[in-house]
């Protein structure tokens, strides 16, 4: 007797879906911004190799890479979803979670580290109760860590919402963040 493996799995899938542990299938994205991604895909002639470029575009549009976007790209380019996911999670630049409204990026490159960036970072973590790589509970700030922004001569550097603070100190950074909240 042959069994339909797919139908047999349905009850489990159903349970998981009810427990809200699954992203929705089938994969329709009813969002106008998706057209922009489609255009890029078409511009590259549906070439699979330019996957990184498409993920860049998607992240620029949405701010982060939701699973449904990854799935959309996977469908359009005919790349297995696991491969898209593997690529998206390999590179630090791609974010799969929604970031907070203010991004605070600490450079932990050699020069900044030697000049005490770690101390500033710890102070910020303590004061605002957010760990590096995470977003605060109220969704207001996210702390990111990067390895060198390339302004080593001005170390330590902290980037707060696209504004670079060079030769940063605990006080300047904390004051700046406080003023944002």
């Amino acid at each position: 007797m042959t069994k339909n493996i797919y139908s047999n799995r349905l009850p489990v899938v159903q349970q998981l879906r009810e427990a809200n542990e699954l992203s929705e299938y089938p994969k329709t994205v009813s969002d106008k911004r998706i057209i922009l991604i489609d255009k890029t895909i078409a511009a590259y002639g549906y070439r699979r190799d330019a996957l990184l470029e498409k993920l860049h575009v998607a992240q620029n549009i949405y701010g982060y890479l939701e699973k449904k976007i990854l799935l959309h790209i996977s469908e359009k380019l005919k790349i297995p979803p696991s491969q898209v996911y593997g690529v998206a999670t390999f590179y630090n630049y791609f974010k799969l979670k929604k970031p907070g409204s203010h991004a605070i990026t600490f450079c932990l490159g050699t020069a900044c580290y030697v000049k005490g960036a770690e101390e500033i970072l710890s102070a910020v973590e303590r004061e605002f109760n957010v760990k590096r790589g995470e977003t605060s509970a109220d969704g207001k700030i996210s702390i990111f860590v990067t390895r060198c922004v390339g302004a080593c001569a001005m170390a330590p550097n902290v980037i707060i919402d696209d504004e670079m603070i060079g030769k940063a100190t605990k006080e300047t950074v904390l004051d700046k963040i406080r003023s944002l909240l």
């Binding site: 996957l51 990184l52 590179y91 390895r147």
Partner: peptide
Amino acid sequence: LRLGAGAFVAGEETAILSSIEGLRA
């Protein structure tokens, strides 16, 4: 022009090839 996405190892001679091909570096 091809953009990286924050992976130091992608600067390695053969990893850069994987990355340009749109794979994990």
